[in-house]
Nucleic acid binder design. Structure first.
Lengths: 271, 271
DNA sequence: GGGTATTTGTCCGTATGTATT
DNA sequence: AAATACATACGGACAAATACC
């Protein structure tokens, strides 16, 4: 069996979808019963084919309704400035370009936790040391955008940064607050980018499909003082299906507001 | 049916795997037949459960052998310097830290293409203009690392940059070659980061699972001259399952060589 | 709101193919 | 060659979700 039957069917459907012969203008694909007749295969076999398309994100199914081709979504574009000018927003510097989108920020949930794993490693703390965590959810135009938690060594609070443990937004940004309070500068930052599977919390908040197809960006930003000592770690997660990042270096023309985010270039660099 | 049977089984298996009760030390999970007995479900149902785990990347199956829990892989860490000092490697500045890894670079495949889509948009060319594309594959320690294509307007070749259309490596870097030849500087760069599904070529080169679970980073780097005119676009794709990026800004302590890349922080910032 | 038809989701049993040991 | 284990494929029954009258 060179190519399994379900795979042949899947490839055929994909071709027809890309040609626009199927599912155009939001119409559903043929029902499983119809496909069963068309391909002379059992319903379970055509279902396997459709499942493969679902796994590729090409189509989605709705119980009781049918199978539809997925629409590309207009991504959030987050610009990471290399040299932040000033007044960055809370904890994670970001700017979302595009047509008058309205951000929405939850009240921070503040907790005292024990540092472990990544947080302890990044802050250079012994596993078991206390940290303050400030957690926030972001929405843009009502769409879940990011989950963010910033961790500070408990020592900062003991030295007077009491606003860190209040569950209210720090308007000027927590980092700025610390800079003002302690008369120092965040001299450097290191960002780590990775992609991993979404956990249950993220799947629920971002409303991701259950099959684990859509991962999340995990951004770990560590802030250092002049002495090279880390004093905060911010962990931000964002779903990969609706987010892009832009990094600018040196002299770069402004990104036009209506500038379309690239869809895909896969056809353009093939081996 | 609050929770489907297959999902209950999947959750139970996941729990046991995470507890180390199953699949530890490389031993296979119980066979489908054994699971069928254990859970008193049909073989198809336990297969559905296992499929879900496979989709999550928690286990993999090998025909004729069994089902095994996936091992975490030691990721490549690519450092993106904000202000490249000098002598960046060909076309895409990168540095892979870690234990004496040996990079491997294919001979470039050079083509003359018609610009369209992303490339035309980024280079500010009319769709239909000619571009030179230089495509390379990278391996690290024999493991496929990236696919990369850089596009230059054909006009550069007509103005004398003839080495661009030769299928030989440009040791000092193509950008450096252009800078020397035309006495100008790459004054700025814009990087776009996105994640998308791998296409067939990428799946084959990177040896990705067929189910589309693993996406690829797509990095689009556009280089601008002093006048703000784009003169090259580099498209790089790397699988998300084995790559991380690090971005440093300002004064940051050196990244230790053996510094472990973070596994996951999902447990540490939950709503 | 209720009922019904449509469509996908779950679950079962069975048979046979293919890869690996 | 034989045994084992996963992969493919079929057919059937019922459940759950949705739309529509």
């Amino acid at each position: 069996m060179a190519e399994p039957r379900w795979r042949q069917i899947a490839d055929d459907l994909r071709q027809k979808i890309e040609d626009g012969a199927l599912g155009a203008d939001g119409k559903p694909l043929p029902t499983e019963l119809e496909l069963q007749d068309e391909y002379e295969a059992s319903r379970n076999t055509v279902r396997d084919a459709v499942k493969w398309l679902v796994g590729r994100g090409l189509v989605y199914t709705r119980s009781g309704q049918g199978t539809f081709v997925s629409q590309k979504i207009d991504p959030f574009v987050t610009v990471l400035q290399p040299n932040e000018p000033e007044g960055e927003s809370t904890a994670f510097a970001f700017a979302v370009k595009n047509r008058s989108r309205t951000p929405d920020l939850s009240v921070p949930r503040v907790e005292i936790q024990v540092a472990y794993g990544v947080v302890a490693a990044e802050l250079g703390l012994a596993a078991g040391a206390s940290v303050v965590s400030r957690h926030q959810r972001r929405l843009i135009d009502g769409v879940p955008y990011s989950l963010q938690t910033t961790f500070y060594p408990m020592a900062l609070v003991e030295q007077g940064a009491t606003r860190l443990i209040q569950a209210t937004d720090i308007a000027e940004g927590a980092v700025h607050y610390l800079e003002d309070l302690f008369k120092f500068k965040e001299a450097g930052r290191r960002d780590r980018f990775a992609v991993r599977a979404a956990d249950a919390n993220e799947s629920a908040f971002f409303v991701l499909p259950d099959d684990g197809r859509v991962g999340v960006f995990e951004l770990i930003r560590t802030g250092f003082d002049e002495a090279g000592q880390p004093f905060r770690v911010t962990v931000t997660t964002l779903p990969t299906d609706r987010n892009q990042f832009v990094l600018e270096n040196g002299k770069v023309p402004a990104l036009a507001d209506g500038d379309d985010a690239p869809k895909s270039s896969s056809a353009e660099h093939k081996p």
